[in-house]
Amino acid sequence: MPVERNIVLEVDNLQTHFSTDEGVVRAVDGVSFQLEAGKTLALVGESGSGKSVTSLSIMRLLQKGVGRVAGGRILFEGRDLAALTEPEMRRVRGKDIAMVFQEPMTSLTPVYTVGDQIAEAIMAHEPISKRAARARAVELLETVGIPEPATRARAYPHQLSGGMRQRVMIAIALACNPKVLIADEPTTGLDVTIQAQILDLMRRLQKETGMAILFITHDLGVVAEMADRVLVMYAGRTVEEAAVEPLFGEPRMPYTQGLMASIPRLGSAPEGVSHPRLQAIRGNIPSPRNLPQGCAFHPRCEHASPDFCTHNVPALEDSGMGHMVRCARWRDVLQTAQVAP
């Protein structure tokens, strides 16, 4: 390898199963990736793709007795997280790997001030006095761009707006200078003007701290702005993985292509067409409880062949330069795409 890569987190063939009344559901089925220091990997997928379950598996936050990691390895700086005791894992969580969730209101407790909640996160991992921790909390609030941080530290979550609460969540996540930040739909539900601010903040903080970000989202616009590398998930499996430019420039899995085509893009309405249509992917997202045989995407795929795709799960293969694609027909698909305008 020409360049030394600093891999902080490695997920290798992760299998996460949920036991339900209808049997075992394979929510994540053999997902692998490497996360590099200072870089952002985006996990993209729609409902039921397994992207959030992947992050909860890494953090060992799956609900006990319901979900479990059934196979694979999760290595943080070479240490297998599955082998850690719960107290050891607790030291990793929040300190080495921190997490930001979609719903800042449900992740913050309503009965403590935000300053106290940040201070608590610091004191959980560092031998530091309450006073010093509170002072750090105010500094952190300033870092994440909250005006009048000393006053806001005394506010309760309900007194802050959604954007402010997400900044507080980021402040808590950053409290112990984590090496990995897992951001699970951190801007979903925020207004676009506020989303722009939060994304900008995350980019700035990554530059300053060199942390790696695992960014989980359904929004390809956000991916294009944030990610260095992208992993597209569908029905629990990786279906495509590549650096951000080739993934957007030349998506190779028909699902990714369909997803790209179905986004409403500003200024893309065709001229002179009175009632234009978007390009939709036909059919519905399959339920993880009842996945189609063969390639999980074949019932919705325009390129599916009745001989192969309906019976066989294609392998994830390297289509060149590390552009991974899980499609038995990617060569034909690529040709069709190049012939068509």
Binding site: V192, T193, Q195, A196, Q197, L199, D200, D219, L220, G221, V222, V223, A224, E225, A227, V244, E245, F248, M260, I263, R265, L266
Partner: peptide, 17 residues
């Protein structure tokens, strides 16, 4: 201008409110 553009490296003359 705040709407994320699904094109990596697209020129973003973002007006940050």
């Amino acid at each position: 201008s705040a709407a994320p553009i699904p094109e990596p490296g697209a020129a973003r003359n973002r007006i940050m409110l």
